[in-house]
Write a protein that binds this DNA or RNA. Structure first.
Length: 970
RNA sequence: GGACGAUUAGCUCAGCUGGUUAGAGCGUUCGAUUCACAUUCGAAAGGUCACUGGUUCGAAUCCAGUAUCGUCCACCA
């Protein structure tokens, strides 16, 4: 039964996916060679909040290509799928939903922690199901039996273990620092979770005692009592550091102190500023340096506090103009610049305006030197980590700090730098390494605690009975303490080890010291803390999660998957996630396991719409949803459209015509196979019985295809090895369409070698499989040898050596044939000969006479040629249109149709282009410098070209003279 | 203020370590429909490779600078 005329992806894709899954092919255990090299990718876990979008599609397509390619090459391949709990994103989505659907303004207060978490968990369950289905739709061949979720008990255990380890190493501390506070979500966010929006804001200059100071935020200025200037600023030389003065200010006179610090840029504004340490990162640091007092002006709810006097309780937007008004009334407003552009910090997730606040939070110290290394086997390895003695190790060795001395200590920053600098981790494209280093240089301590409920709890417990009673207080209560109290308190805590605070990976019911009641820290951890462990926490044996008698290192040692599949090979993800996630994984994994998380980072760009804009709900007409596209064009077409023409690190534009183009390609392939199957049926040949070794080229076309396959096979293999996905896919596309279909298949209609053809097509399916797995697998089932495995498990084609012949190669001979046929077709169109009409053609060639004679049938059929004469000796013709190839001249008889005007036109056109070409060659060859300095072979080649083009020109001149003569006669 | 990327046909993009008469897809024009595919086939038109210098026998390709667009980073209060 022949295949349908067009390929219908809907009829195949789900069925094929199910078949793959049932076959066990997605699991590394399906690799028969137990000693085979492993190849692992940890799938970047999509947020468990919603739906798959094109960003996911591109990542799934690329990763699946790497995975399928390496699986076919015989490696033990593991692709771990999963989802991320995405703390802030998820909690905010569910809260909004509850607010909207149940009309509860503050769900946290109304429902309480337990109930809200239950609601979020329900939501996430549904959402994860949706995502699983969508990942399958893309054809992702990941191992579902190893699916993980960042809130799994095993992963939670890993999170706690790493926290404890870092705390014990003194890398985690609790302290009062200026943090980014999102008043909308009521939580801190990290530096990287902030984006800046430029906004035109009036910029005010006020008189402050003898100084003029400027600000865009007058509502924060209530507590200002320090003026800061550069120590070398001559204008203010008469003011001494520490000097005090009284200034009239918003709510009456204040006593102010002069501070000299180099942080002030004398060139900027008046060179003097007042500071607001509680609500500004740099001011906070300055206050630390000079031990200055700090006051909170704005509450965590975004309203002004008591210090603002009559303005207390007002939200910022309301207070600002009123404060300005009051200062103006007092005569303190000097000027207003209305064109000032101010950068407003906005939360990446909630889009709320972020207000720096001083809060007691947990931090990871990125500068403290605590990590040790030791020389071993020539490289320095971190010691005491979870590698089994003598365990088979992936060829890539766990990372080390090259040249590190025994006992030398390193900071987390240094670890992150060294693994990339040493080339243990390679970033593609390379230019992102620079971006990465730049980020590390600017990296501050990482605030890891969040006042969100959805996430991993900070594994810290406070005993209310023993130790400092203040430890038992909640973080909110601590916020109410005075600054001095807080500073003293936090330094005490930072010292660590004191009673009353218990940091434990194991849940605790009572204080181990006094048996007293304990409270767990109410905060959760930054979502990137857990995703930072993704490559290895997903490989930990889940049965070990509850066994608190074993250490983290022990867990690593006893987890076979970790032993086999870590470090992973490729981390493929979006370029904009480099800091959030990639850098965090490098930090957390190298620290916690002593191994790099991955060897290669492949970064893809954004998927943009046809106008180069981000796809969003504001442009619904150009936005593309993969879930609409897949039913319409098929997953294969979508995959091809986003992997071909794409290059690492660069954005790609996607639009429907592009996808339709690749749908056409898939259909072209389908029809090529359909044609082959019809031929088999006609010749009563069962394709399933054609053995794979029947790769015997017989015709000229066979030989040419053979060599062309050799070349494309090499390009695809090399391309995929070197992450040049687009190059590999593109060469397959043009090979299949322009060579295989347009020439080989067409010629096979006149002279066929079916066993060879079937095997060639089989190899095409193999090479295309990583790119478009569904259609290739579907066709494979009709074309494969009966004993062959399904395509997903089939070995990657290997090179078959091509015997080196003498002289012109079959591929070159084939090209001569193609050129002759093309020339005849062109002459026909130029002379406007009816499409189906047979013509008489005379070909004269010394060089290729024998070859073309042997291919006569093809020339006749594809050129619609009736009378065909091929000879070595030219004969003069009248009334012909002519074309001149290298060593071959072709004359198309125009008896009765001869139109000298048309003929002249086409000859002139050819002449013009050849003359231009010849003149270029002449110029080159007349240049003595070229002749003497360029490689001799090149000079020879250019001379050869010149001879050839001059011969052609001579012939054209003859024809032209003849035609003009003809014109004159009439 | 720094860093990076882009600039090649009307549109979207290839052109890797310098040597091709600068390519593809879409779109456009002309022609074709029993015989795998109109999601097709044949043919064509269309480009001073952003600009200015430099290196070189030779530059779309390497270097420097300029312009436009875009991205990221940074304590300009």
């Amino acid at each position: 039964m022949p295949l349908p005329k067009t390929y219908d992806p809907k009829a195949s894709e789900d069925r094929i996916y199910e078949m793959w899954e049932k076959s066990g092919a997605f699991r590394p255990e399906s690799c028969k060679d137990e000693k085979a090299e492993t190849f692992t990718i940890s799938m970047p876990p999509p947020n468990a909040t919603g739906q798959l979008h094109l960003g996911h599609s591109v990542m799934l397509a690329l990763q699946d290509i790497f995975i399928r390619f390496n699986r076919m090459r015989g490696k033990r391949v593991l692709w771990v799928p999963g989802t991320d709990h995405a703390s802030i994103a998820t909690e905010s989505v569910v809260i909004k939903q509850i607010q909207k659907e149940e009309n509860i303004p503050d769900p946290r207060a109304k429902l309480g922690r337990e109930e809200l978490i239950r609601r979020i968990a329900d939501f996430v369950d549904k959402s994860r199901g949706t995502i699983r289905g969508q990942v399958r739709k893309m054809g992702a061949s990941c191992d579902w039996s190893r699916e993980r979720y960042t809130l799994d008990p095993t992963l939670n255990r890993c999170v706690s273990e790493v926290f404890v380890k870092m705390y014990q190493d003194g890398l985690i501390y609790r302290g009062h620092r200026a943090v980014n506070w999102d008043p909308k979500m009521q939580t801190t966010v990290s530096d990287d979770e902030i984006e800046y929006i430029e906004e035109k804001t009036p910029y005010y200059t006020f008189q402050y005692g003898p100084f003029q100071i400027s600000t865009a935020r007058p509502e924060t200025k209530f507590g200002d009592k320090y003026v800061v200037m550069h120590p070398a600023d001559k204008r203010y030389a008469k003011y001494k550091d520490g000097e005090t003065f009284t200034a009239e200010w918003i709510n009456g006179p204040v006593k102010a102190t002069v501070i000299k610090d180099k942080i002030v840029d004398p060139e900027f504004g008046t060179g003097v500023m007042t500071i607001t340490p509680w609500h500004d990162m740099t001011d906070f640091e300055l206050s630390e340096r000079h031990k200055l007092e700090r006051e909170q002006i704005i509450g965590f709810d975004g309203r002004l506090l008591q210090i603002a006097g009559e303005f207390a309780g007002m939200p910022i937007e309301e207070a600002r103009p009123k404060v300005v008004e009051k200062l103006k009334a007092k005569g303190l407003l000097v000027k207003v610049d209305k064109n000032y552009v101010h950068r407003v910090a906005v939360s990446y997730r909630g889009k709320g305006i972020v207000e720096p606040q001083i809060k007691e939070q947990w931090f990871i110290d990125v500068n403290k030197k605590v990590v040790t290394w030791e020389e071993q086997e020539g490289i320095s390895l971190r010691q005491g980590f979870g590698r089994q003695e003598g365990a088979r190790r992936h060829p890539a060795t766990p990372f080390g700090l090259r040249g590190a001395r025994k006992g030398e200590l390193f900071s987390l920053k240094e670890i992150m730098q060294s693994v990339v600098r040493n080339g243990e981790i390679k970033i593609i494209p390379e230019r992102f390494e620079k971006v990465y280093f730049n980020w590390i240089d600017n990296l501050r301590d990482w605030c890891i605690s969040r006042q969100i409920w959805w996430g991993h709890r900070v594994p810290v417990y406070y005993c209310s009975k023993c130790g400092d009673a203040k430890n038992a207080q909640t973080s909110d209560e601590r916020s109410a303490m005075s600054d001095e109290q807080l500073t003293a308190h936090s330094s005490q805590l930072t010292a660590g080890g004191q009673s009353g605070i218990i940091v434990s990976s194991r849940p605790i019911d009572g204080c181990p010291h006094c048996g007293g009641v304990v409270h767990q820290d109410p905060d959760t951890l930054d979502t990137w803390f857990s995703s930072g462990l993704w490559t290895w926490s997903t490989l930990i044996d889940p049965s070990l999660a509850d066994d608190f008698s074993i250490s983290l290192d022990e867990m690593l040692k006893r987890s076979p998957d970790f032993q086999d599949f870590h470090p992973t090979q490729i981390l493929e993800t979006a370029a904009d996630i480099l800091f959030f996630w990639v850098a965090r994984m490098i930090l957390m994994t190298t620290y916690a396991t002593g191994e790099i998380p991955f060897e290669t980072v492949y970064l893809h760009g954004l998927v943009l719409d046809r106008n180069g804009e981000k796809m969003s709900k504001s442009h619904p007409e150009t936005a593309i949803d993969p879930l609409d596209i897949i039913p319409k064009y098929g997953a294969d077409a979508l995959r091809l459209s986003m992997t071909i023409g794409q290059s690492p690190g660069n954005d790609t534009r996607l639009y429907e015509e592009k996808i339709a183009g690749y749908r056409n390609f898939v259909n072209k392939l389908w029809n090529a196979a359909r044609f082959v199957l019809i031929q088999c049926e006609k010749e009563k040949l069962d394709p399933k019985a054609i053995i794979p070794s029947a790769y015997e080229p017989k015709t000229l076309a066979d030989f040419a295809l053979f060599s062309e396959l050799l070349s494309v096979r090499g390009k695809v293999t090399l391309g995929l090895e070197n992450y040049a996905v687009s190059v590999a896919g593109d060469s397959l596309y043009s090979f299949v369409w322009d060579f295989f279909c347009d020439w080989y298949l067409e010629l096979s209609k006149g002279e066929s070698n079916l066993p060879f053809l079937v095997n060639a097509l089989r190899e095409i399916l193999q090479l295309l499989h990583p790119f478009c797995p569904f259609v290739t697998e579907e066709l494979w089932s009709s074309l494969k040898h009966e004993n062959a495995d399904i395509l997903i498990k089939h070995p990657w084609p290997v090179d078959i050596a091509l015997a080196e012949g003498k002289g012109i190669t079959p591929r070159e001979q084939f090209q001569v044939l193609i050129d002759v046929i093309s020339a005849i077709r062109k002459l026909r169109v130029e002379q406007e000969i009816e499409a189906g009409k047979d013509v008489a053609v005379f070909i004269y060639t010394k060089k290729h006479a024998e070859l073309l004679q042997s291919q006569e049938a093809h020339i006749r059929r594809l050129g619609h040629v009736g009378t065909l004469m091929i000879d070595a000796k030219p004969v003069k013709h009248t009334n012909v249109a002519s074309a001149f190839l290298s060593g071959t001249e072709i004359h198309l008889s125009l008896e009765g149709l001869f139109d000298p005007v048309k003929v002249k036109k086409s000859l002139l056109k050819e002449q013009t282009s050849l003359v231009r070409y010849r003149d270029g060659l002449l110029q080159k060859l007349r240049n003595q410098d070229f002749v003497s300095r360029a490689p001799a072979s090149l000079v020879e080649a250019e001379k050869g070209k010149l001879t050839e083009v001059e011969e052609k020109l001579k012939k054209i001149d003859e024809r032209l003279a003849h035609t003009i003569l003809h014109l004159k006669h009439n």
